[in-house]
């Protein structure tokens, strides 16, 4: 297949666009988000996700999330075999829309938190966690 100069340029531009696009979560994670939001738009900001930059071990990674005014927060590990981690639903006696837990990450990946706000809107935050391989296997 031969490309014209114009086509080659277009391809190059496309490749550049691909590399600069923000990391996209995998299909299963996108499905999980869609199921949670009902397909509504998800804004960035308003969600605080605290995750280590480098996890000392992927088997036990501390993750904290909070979103003022949220009624529920869904936590996803986009690179796990199944992306679901936990969904917190905050009740009338929740002291804050915040929770911490410890999770399993199968490898370096994005952890995503999607918050459902009291007004029905959605917001998200994401954080890349590097999961490393230990010393000589021990």
């Amino acid at each position: 297949m031969d490309f014209t100069r114009r086509e080659t340029l277009a391809l190059g531009a496309g490749a550049v666009a691909l590399t600069v696009l923000p990391f996209r979560v995998n299909a299963a994670a996108e499905d999980a988000i869609a199921a949670f939001t009902g397909g509504a738009a998800v804004a960035d900001g308003g969600v605080n996700l605290t995750a280590p930059e480098i996890a000392e071990n992927g088997n036990t990674v501390p993750i904290s999330v909070s979103a003022e005014g949220a009624t529920a927060i869904m936590l996803l590990a986009a690179g796990n075999p199944t992306p679901g981690v936990a969904t917190y639903t905050f009740g009338e006696l929740a002291g804050s829309a915040a929770a911490s837990t410890r999770i399993r990450l199968a490898g370096t990946q994005d952890v995503v938190a999607v918050a459902k706000m009291a007004d029905g809107s959605f917001a998200q935050a994401r954080s890349t966690v590097k999961v490393t391989i230990g010393g000589c296997g021990g």
């Binding site: 199944t82 936990a86 917190y88 399993r104 990450l105």
Partner: peptide, 14 residues
Amino acid sequence: ASVIDVKMEPAIST
């Protein structure tokens, strides 16, 4: 009265 209700998946640690 509910404080929190958590749906847990297999990615929650031991």
